[in-house]
């Protein structure tokens, strides 16, 4: 899975904010041949902070991350699927991206 080094008029080394960015991944599920898909996803640098406060837990955090604000579902048909396997693969395509709370209802929130 890779993000494309685009758009060319934006310097990614210094970019702040949250933008739609081209993203390529391998759609694969058991019983079908994997398919390379290029779509729109979200990438950026959001302002985040932590400050000491007087009361426990003594740190207040403002941790918003670059994520989907609006998306639409796209369904593709994978090739060479086994007879009893549905060939359809659905993924979200980003329409708008924004700095926001990572919603654990719709999102696998990983932090590294």
């Amino acid at each position: 899975c890779v993000f494309a080094p685009k758009p060319s008029n934006v310097n990614l080394q210094t970019f702040t904010g949250c933008a739609v960015r081209e993203f390529t991944f391998l759609a694969k599920k058991p019983g079908c041949r994997a398919m390379r898909i290029t779509t729109d996803a979200c990438w950026g640098r959001c302002e985040t902070w932590e400050k000491p406060v007087l009361d426990p837990p003594y740190i207040e955090a403002h941790h918003r991350v670059c994520t989907y604000n609006e998306s639409k579902l796209v369904t593709v048909k994978l090739q060479h699927c086994a007879a009893n396997i549905s060939p359809f693969y659905t993924y979200p395509k980003a329409i708008r991206c924004d700095c926001g709370v990572c919603l654990t209802t719709t999102t696998e929130c990983e932090t590294v």
């Binding site: 899975c1 993000f3 949250c18 960015r21 993203f23 991944f25 759609a27 694969k28 599920k29 058991p30 779509t39 996803a41 979200c42 990438w43 950026g44 640098r45 959001c46 302002e47 985040t48 902070w49 932590e50 955090a61 941790h63 991350v65 670059c66 994520t67 989907y68 998306s71 579902l73 659905t90 993924y91 979200p92 980003a94 991206c97 990572c102 209802t105 719709t106 999102t107 696998e108 929130c109 990983e110 932090t111 590294v112």
Partner: peptide, 28 residues
């Protein structure tokens, strides 16, 4: 830096197809 993109099939399965977005993020 932070990013969000379509989840892998293993993530979809583990979340009963609820988590179709994966966010990978760092914060200050």
């Amino acid at each position: 830096e932070s990013s969000a993109f379509p989840s892998k099939y293993s993530v979809l399965l583990a979340s009963s197809f609820k988590h179709n977005i994966t966010s990978v993020s760092q914060c200050c």
